[in-house]
């Protein structure tokens, strides 16, 4: 019981750090493309870790399943959006940062 709680807390805190990294990347990176990198990867790992931390505490299989489903949906949405934004940005002729 205690071990799962500690593990779960660690996962949650790690998740929060990745969310912070996503925001920092969004603010610091120089152009649209690099910001997309920060958003999709950092946030999805962040959410993944938060979900993993909560799955450890889940009271039943269905709850764990629902948490995983939510994560997969966010993965699908953000990967697709990242591609679509990058594609549209290229079409608009937004140059790469050098």
């Amino acid at each position: 019981m205690l071990v799962t709680e500690i593990l779960s807390s660690l996962l949650l805190i790690a998740g929060a750090i990745f969310f912070l990294a996503g925001t920092v990347g969004l603010l610091r990176f120089p152009d649209v493309y690099t910001r997309l990198h920060a958003l999709t990867k950092a946030d999805n790992v962040g959410l993944g870790l938060v979900v993993a931390g909560l799955v450890l505490q889940a009271e039943s299989w269905t709850v764990a399943g629902k948490l995983l489903l939510i994560w997969l949906l966010v993965l699908l949405a953000s990967a697709s959006i990242a591609h679509l934004v990058a594609k549209a940005a290229r079409k608009k002729g937004i140059e790469l940062w050098k």
Binding site: F29, P30, D31, T34, A38, N44, V45
Partner: peptide, 24 residues
Amino acid sequence: RSLYAGVDVARRAFDPSLPISPQM
């Protein structure tokens, strides 16, 4: 690999010197 991706991009975001060199 996606966990590694998160770590990689987080490291670059936090690094004061911003070690990125983009390419298509």
